[in-house]
């Protein structure tokens, strides 16, 4: 009987054993929590990147396929303005441009917008979007874009832009615009990417041809 009691006493947990168990648990739990915290941060980083991608796509889609050619003015940031006094285009600009760029794209003229704005997502991350447009017109380069065709048995024919179209509403012989979209964001909440030296960026480039004239 005494031997059994001694055995039970020996199989009990001492204070030292509990301390060692907690120490082991702590050593295991520390990297686990570090991993979990890191993982949450990583997931947030991918979330912000995904939002930036979809915003850049929204802007580029709108500019390449919806925005009227004549409404896009060159510059960094570029401007949006209906130059043919069309009420439908004006209404489109008033509605679509603030949706694309967020706050700050308005100008003193309610019908003119600039392609630069700040947007904050529901989680509190801030994104800046800006678009630069270059007119690739007849006079912008020493070797401007030209069109060629070579009929069988004949020599190659060259057509300059000014041989094919009149000047546009900006006074240029132009058939193509270079569009560069940049979305810049901070991975810290409520921080303007302009003030974050670690801000991330994505870019999209497109060439919009004048298919309306």
């Amino acid at each position: 009987m005494q031997r059994i009691i001694n055995n039970i006493k020996k199989s009990g947990i001492t204070f030292v054993e509990v301390c060692v168990a907690f120490l082991i648990l702590g050593l295991v739990a520390l990297p686990v929590f570090q991993f979990l915290t890191g993982s949450v941060k990583e997931t947030e980083r991918y979330y912000t990147e995904t939002i930036a991608i979809s915003r850049a796509k929204f802007i580029m889609d709108s500019l390449m396929f919806q925005m009227p050619w004549q409404a896009i003015g060159a510059g960094n940031p570029c401007s949006f303005e209906d130059r043919k006094n069309n009420d439908g285009v004006k209404a489109f600009l008033r509605k679509s441009v603030p949706k694309m760029f967020g706050d700050g794209c308005e100008t003193v003229d309610s019908d003119v917008f600039k392609a630069d704005g700040l947007y904050q997502c529901r989680k509190g991350f801030m994104y800046r979007a800006r678009v630069k447009v270059e007119d690739l017109d007849e006079d912008s380069s020493s070797a401007p874009i030209q069109f060629t065709i070579e009929l069988p048995g004949k020599s190659k024919q060259y057509f300059k832009i000014k041989d094919l179209v009149p000047k546009d509403s900006y006074g240029k012989y132009n058939l193509m615009k270079k569009i560069v979209v940049q979305v810049k964001w901070s991975n810290s909440k409520n921080v303007d990417p302009k003030d974050d030296p670690h801000a991330k960026s994505i870019f999209l480039v497109g060439f919009k041809s004048d298919l309306e004239g």
């Binding site: 991608i53 480039v205 497109g206 004048d210």
Partner: peptide
């Protein structure tokens, strides 16, 4: 991102061809 960049270049080419 790379896919989108290529997609808009392809559409730029198609617009150039249409032009």
């Amino acid at each position: 991102i790379y896919q989108m960049q290529a997609y808009y270049l392809a559409h730029s080419g198609m617009q150039h061809a249409k032009l």
